[in-house]
Design a protein around this nucleic acid. Structure first.
Lengths: 115, 115
DNA sequence: CTGCATCCAATTCGATACTG
DNA sequence: CAGTATCGAATTGGATGCAG
């Protein structure tokens, strides 16, 4: 399992990137890593995303069992989006992406400095 | 560093997904995890990608220092694409994506069975 | 073999306004 | 607050053919 020579199937990677790649899906999952959020909170957090696009992506993630939309039975216009049980399992993946971003930024900044 | 409550900045995740998200970039990086490849090998491995798109993505990854295009000085029409030093550092990230794909597939298959 | 140019169809997405 | 409707612009991407 920890074999470094293990073969990577790029189609698996592609599948995951279909799921959480794109402009917003990964960002939504990342934002929800921190805490569940309501529609408007999410929209503001991810600005400048539009309602249309955000809804579309939320529906997609919901269909793919990564998040749940919790509709309050009491208050009508209150919907809370949160990671599903399965969605939580991708948090470590998001964290790896997040951490690698920092390393990448350093490399790119250094490259720019060096001309 | 290993604090599970650590805050995730979705913009960092977005940045990485700009880099290796999309239909092909992650797949290219994944394919090159296994071994360096020539243009046509890569094109066949990733089929049905077209030359136009593949070239575009390879140039992008090259500009972002994730891969190198090694042009043979001897044989004219021979170019080998490989991870750069920095590109290698994203292999673990790719492996996490790859492994999570399997878990996700299981969850989705189960969900389908259960209706 | 590597890579580019052109044409064309399809998708995507922002802006805006609107509904319950 | 949560979500929908419509329009038009822009981007993307496939097919194909060609060049060094």
């Amino acid at each position: 399992m920890k074999d470094k020579a293990k073969h990577i199937f790029h189609r698996d990677v592609q599948d995951v990137l279909d799921l959480i790649g794109g402009r917003w899906r990964g960002a939504i999952m990342a934002s929800l890593c921190n805490s569940p959020k309501r529609f408007l909170q999410l929209k503001e957090d991810l600005a400048p995303v539009t309602s249309k696009v955000l809804i579309k992506e939320l529906r997609y993630l919901e269909q793919n069992k990564l998040i749940n939309a919790l509709r309050s039975t009491e208050a009508e216009n209150s919907v809370v989006y949160a990671h599903s049980e399965h969605g939580k399992s991708c948090a470590p993946v998001i964290i790896h992406l997040h951490d690698w971003a920092k390393r990448h930024r350093e490399v790119m900044l250094k490259a720019i400095k060096e001309g």
